[in-house]
Structure formats: structure tokens, C-alpha cells
Amino acid sequence: MAVYTEVSLSEAQALFKQLKLGHVTSLKGCAGGIENTNYFASAELEGQTHDYVLTLFERLSFEQLPFYLQLMKHLAQHGIAVPEPTANDKGALVFDVKSKPAAVVNKLSGASELAPTPEHCAQVGAMLARMHLAGRSFEPQQPNLRGLSWWNDTVPVVLPYLTQAQKALITQELAYQNHVAALSSYAALPRGPIHADLFRDNVLFDTVNHAPVLSGFFDFYFAGIDTWIFDLAVCLNDWCIDLETGKNNAQNAHSFIASYNQERPLLAAERALLPAMLRAGALRFWLSRLWDFHLPREASMLQAHDPSHFERVLTQRVSHLLDFDTLAACA
């Protein structure tokens, strides 16, 4: 989250009045993330205070945004713990705030767990599988906008900023991913709506009887139609690695995969291509962080991510070609 577009309290109050959400009593900009303008808002309605997130979308268009919001509403209505967008009297989910597309969703309870244990990973893996299954009945179509096509377009843009070794790594990996995408086994992989960015800071947990209980997934604004195994790989590259080195955390990986597999058993083709998708996920986020780092946008609150982190993850995934069974094995 970040703040690129300033929103006043009165402007937020006007939108909340339109949505019949009550009177906004506080509005606070969010510093985390890099894509959109986000505010935490509290509103009073009939003597009760409710918490929301107001988002202004800096890159997504008015035409693109309904896909994400409709997906969130679909998942919420199918029992997946995600923020549910608020509609107006006409059923619209997208609104114009300062000439930017905007949305309001309920704020989930809990906090992110930045040092996940196998128990955290088990809960996330199980809900990820249930989310994929719930998405099968979601009809709107929109590709993963940060998928292979974007990688092919963006690598040439960041190459001038890289060392020779980095150039070699990123161009070789891009060629490999184009090769994988041309395989018939890849084309046959099951797919549907994916989150595509389900990192530790996009999941919340409550504590019940001193134990973690997953309270929800959020920030679906990189979602799109893609392979489910890529979504799983993106998660494994964050939840199941050592942040300092990028090395695989076998205990977390075992817990995550086992719980996912219990809800939706992985196909043999998915197992075979998971190592390639781990490399794909690392390339995607190294590339996007390079782009944001070297070609930044102005924002009043912004915390840029370190590109070198996913360079290390990619290097680990390339140099340690773990097969599925090794990856999922408990240390």
C-alpha cells in the first residue's frame, strides 16, 4: 500500500454517504505496498463503528477493476475469508474519486505473520486450495497482467540498470520460461482465478486460545486467470523460504503443500512443473521489484521493496533443482 493521491476527510465522507456506510470519523494513509493509494477509514453508523479500506487504483483502469472486485465478492459469498467490496444502490463496485477508480472494502481482523511456522503455512495452503476450487464457478475472464507477456515486455526496460551477471540470469530465465509456456503439458495445467501475490503481508491471522487462526486473504489487485500451480509457487517462494538466503524451508514447504494437496490433490503434471513455476514466480517478482526500484513513481508514502531478495530466490531455485518430492519433504 502507498499514497499517491491525497484524499481529504470530506471527500471520503462524500463517498461513504453515497454507499450508506455512515459518517467517516477517521482516515489514515497506509504506507505499505507500492501499487495503489490506500486509506484505513472508520465510520460510525447507528452508534457502531466499522472499519474499512478505501483504495484508489493508480494503474488499473475503470474497465479492468470490476474483475478484481467481482472476484472478491464471489469468493466472499463462497465462504472464503476475503474483504467484500461495497456496492451502491445500483450494484456498482467501482467509484470515481479524484478521477481515479476507487473501491471500499471491509477491513479484516488480525495481523500478518512475518515469521510463519508450519502451522501458519498449513492454514494458508488449505485456504488457497479452497479459494482455487471456489473460483471455478467465477465466469469473468482477465489474464494475469503480470504474466509472461509482461515479463517479455519489461525485461528489456530494466536491462540497462543491471550488471552483466544479472543480465545473463534474467535473460536466460526469461528464455526458459518462454520454453516452458510452449509445452503441451503446461497448456494442459488446470487454471482459474489466482491471487498471484499471496505473500505473508497479504494474509491475516487472529489468535484464539494462544493459537493462530487464519482470518483472511486480501489485496487481490494482481489477480487474474492463470495456472493454480503458479499461484502455489508464488506462495512457496515467500512462506517457505529463508528470507536472508532465499533457501527452501523444507518444514514450511511440506506443511503448505500437504495441506493444499488435502483440499485439492495436485495432478502429476502440476507436480512435474512445480520447480519451473517456482522459478517463474521468482522471476516475476524480481522483475517487478527491479521495475519499481529503477523506475519509481512519486508517492507521499512509499516503501520500495529490495529487488535483490528475489534475485537470491531465483538463484536458489535455478541452482538447486529440487524435484517435487524433495521440495515437499519435511526436513
Rank of each mutant, 00 (worst) to 15 (best):
P118R: 04
H50R: 14
T171D: 07
L169C: 10
S109Q: 14
A211Q: 15
L266V: 11
Q262N: 14
S288T: 15
P160K: 11
F16D: 00
W286A: 12
E58N: 14
D206A: 10
L290P: 02
A196G: 09
S259Y: 03
D323H: 12
H50K: 14
A122H: 04
Y52A: 07
L278K: 01
A87C: 10
R317L: 11
Q303H: 13
G216L: 01
V82E: 05
V234I: 15
G33L: 02
F256P: 02
M301K: 13
I225Y: 04
H320V: 08
P296E: 10
E35Y: 08
N209K: 13
W239K: 00
S185A: 14
L27S: 02
L214S: 07
H305Y: 06
K247I: 05
L60E: 03
M1N: 05
F138W: 09
R289T: 04
N237A: 11
K73I: 07
A41L: 11
A304V: 14
L327P: 00
G79V: 05
A129G: 02
Q18H: 15
G135S: 09
I34N: 04
Y260F: 13
R317T: 04
V94D: 03
E44W: 00
A111V: 10
W151E: 10
H195Y: 08
L45H: 14
F138T: 06
A76T: 08
C30N: 11
D242N: 15
A181I: 06
G91L: 07
Q166M: 05
L214N: 06
E270S: 11
S10K: 15
